[in-house]
Amino acid sequence: MFTDKFLRDRRGVELDVHERAILEKAVFEIRTIDARKTVVQAGDTLSVSMLLLEGFMCRYLDDREGMRQLVAVQVPGDFLDLHGYPLKILDHDVASLTAATIAVIPHKALDDINATMPELTRKLWFSTLLDAAMHRAWLFRLGRLDAVGRVAHFLSETNARLVPVGLSDGKRFALGLTQADISEICGITSVHTNRVLRQLREERLCIFRSSLVEILDVEGLARRGQFNPAYLYIETISDRSGVERLTS
């Protein structure tokens, strides 16, 4: 099943059996993508949307000097470009960070869902609103937090997102990102990221080593990054991630 991670454990929008079958049927093709490949460029006209099945991918913008700013990271179960269905042309690029597998859904199939399945349409809309909620959190992170806080917020968020799709046990997860990627997510240099990761380790909050993240103190890391997972709308996060006191 390709769509089993999509909206899993999200509050009030988990797909029922029929909806999941319809979405499965809408999948036109499964593609594998090498790491570090751009799959959509800003300005491309789109006729399909892509659901990430495996791996990590991102949306990014380059500045005039070609320096990259990651503006979103997608984890398995996320659509990469569902907003491309109504927009047709994206204002950013989409690329793989690790090797990845995606399910391709033609916009024509989404037209059919839109015409006949209002509740499933609402759930697809919800997933794009989740993207918007995460963008707001990323703006907060870059605008208000110091370097340690930004990295702490990103790692806490990623942990919380990976728990529902079974890719984190609530404290440990594989993160195939480099320190340079984290720098481009958090708007700091690699030198700064290196120092921050050492500081998080020394403060016994988190260890990031060989693409593995081990959070030693889930609540402490969340507190350091002012991370409140409410914007992720995850049903059972308080049961699995240990950050329940931050959500109350």
Partner: peptide, 10 residues
Amino acid sequence: VLLDGPNGVA
């Protein structure tokens, strides 16, 4: 030289 703070400065 790394400058941390005030607030969101990094």
